[in-house]
C-alpha cells in the first residue's frame, strides 16, 4: 500500500449495511465513505445505532448484509486480519484497564503488539503522562485514563483511527489538547472516525458530520452545511398550483411531488405558507413540520446532559 498521504484514497467504505437484533432493525442501509486525512464525525442520540455501527465496522459483530471496505479491502463477516489490525487504532469507551499495571507498563505491552508503531516511551509522551509513568492505572484521574487510552489507540501509528467519545470525562483544557492532537493526526493523513454527542466537538474537528438516526444517516455534510440545514422546515399539502408556481413562492428551496400531495422545503416557512394560501385557496391538508435532522439535534441536546451524567457515574464506579 502507498504510505504517502493521498486524500483521494478511501480508507473506509460502507454500502447498504444492515443489522438487526432479534428482528428489530438497528442499522437499516447505512452508506459511508471516509478518506485519508478526513475526520468523520458520527453524530447521533443514544440508541441511534452508533455502537452497533462501530462494532460492525471493527468486526466485533457481523453485519446481516452490506459491504464493509477497510483500507480498500472487502471484509468478510466478523473477522479482521492481523495485518489489518496492525493499521487500525481504536479507542473505546471502556471502564478500566487492569488497575494494577502502571502507565509505562500498559504502554510497553501495547507497543509490543505492533510491528511499526511507537515505542513505549513515545506512547507515554503522546498520552502526556510522563509525570505519571510509574503510576498504576487505577490511581489515574478520569481524564488521564482517557489520554492513556487515546495514546494506546495510536500505538500502531494507524492509518484509520476510531475514537468512541474520546473526550468523555475530560476537563476543558484536556479536551482542547486532545482536539489539537486529532488535528495533527488528520494532517498526517490519518482517517479518523469519531463518535460524539458533543455538537461542539463535532463542529471543531469534523470535515464532515453524519447524523445517524434510527439506523440511518439522515444528513451529512460539513458542519456549516448541516447548521444551515437545521433552519429548514417542511411543508406538505395538496395544492392546485403547478410545480413552477410552487417553486416561485418565497423561501422555497426544494419540491417533491408525491401522489398524495407535495412536499416543500422552505427556509422561511411562515412567508411561504402565507404566499401559498394567498395564491391558492383550495389548499388542503396543510402541514408544517421540522426536518428530521432538527428532531435529531433536539434529542441530541436532550441526551447530552443525561448521558454525560451517566458516564460520570460509570467512571466513579470504576
Amino acid at each position: 500500500m502507498n504510505p504517502d498521504v493521498n486524500t483521494d484514497q478511501t480508507l473506509l467504505q460502507l454500502t447498504q449495511l444492515h443489522k438487526s437484533f432479534a428482528g428489530k432493525p438497528v442499522l437499516s442501509g447505512v452508506d459511508l465513505r471516509a478518506k485519508a486525512g478526513e475526520v468523520l464525525c458520527i453524530l447521533g442520540p443514544n440508541g441511534a445505532g452508533k455502537t452497533t455501527l462501530i462494532s460492525a465496522i471493527l468486526g466485533l459483530i457481523a453485519a446481516d448484509s452490506g459491504d464493509i471496505y477497510l483500507l480498500g479491502q472487502l471484509q468478510q463477516g466478523a473477522s479482521r486480519s492481523v495485518a489489518l489490525r496492525q493499521q487500525l487504532g481504536v479507542m473505546l469507551q471502556i471502564g478500566s484497564l487492569p488497575a494494577t499495571l502502571t502507565v509505562a507498563e500498559h504502554c510497553d505491552l501495547f507497543a509490543s503488539y505492533y510491528l511499526a508503531g511507537y515505542s513505549a516511551t513515545e506512547l507515554v509522551t503522546l498520552a502526556g503522562l510522563e509525570a505519571h509513568a510509574k503510576q498504576r492505572f487505577g490511581r489515574l484521574s478520569g481524564g488521564q485514563k482517557q489520554r492513556l487510552l487515546f495514546a494506546l489507540a495510536l500505538a500502531g501509528k494507524p492509518r484509520l483511527l476510531f475514537l468512541d467519545e474520546p473526550t468523555l470525562g475530560m476537563d476543558v483544557e484536556a479536551r482542547r489538547g486532545l482536539w489539537q492532537q486529532i488535528r495533527q493526526l488528520q494532517q498526517q493523513g490519518v482517517s479518523i472516525v469519531l463518535t460524539t454527542h458533543y455538537l461542539e466537538e463535532a463542529e471543531q474537528l469534523a470535515n464532515r458530520i453524519m447524523v445517524l438516526h434510527q439506523g440511518k444517516f439522515i444528513a451529512s455534510g460539513s458542519p456549516s452545511e448541516l447548521k444551515a440545514l437545521t433552519q429548514y422546515k417542511v411543508i406538505t399539502c395538496c395544492s392546485a398550483l403547478t410545480d413552477a408556481a410552487l417553486l416561485a413562492l418565497p423561501g422555497v428551496l426544494q419540491l417533491n411531488r408525491q401522489p398524495q400531495g407535495v412536499t416543500l422545503h422552505s427556509s422561511h416557512a411562515e412567508q411561504t405558507v402565507l404566499a401559498l394560501l394567498t395564491a391558492d385557496n383550495t389548499v388542503s391538508q396543510l402541514e408544517v413540520s421540522q426536518v428530521a435532522l432538527e428532531q435529531a439535534f433536539l434529542q441530541l441536546t436532550r441526551g447530552d446532559g443525561t448521558e454525560a451524567v451517566g458516564s460520570e457515574k460509570e467512571e466513579q464506579a470504576a
Partner: peptide
C-alpha cells in the same frame, strides 16, 4: 465487563 478484552481483540495481539 470492562471492555479491556475487546480492546485487546481489536489490537493485533
Amino acid at each position: 465487563a470492562q471492555g479491556w478484552l475487546t480492546l485487546k481483540r481489536l489490537s493485533p495481539m
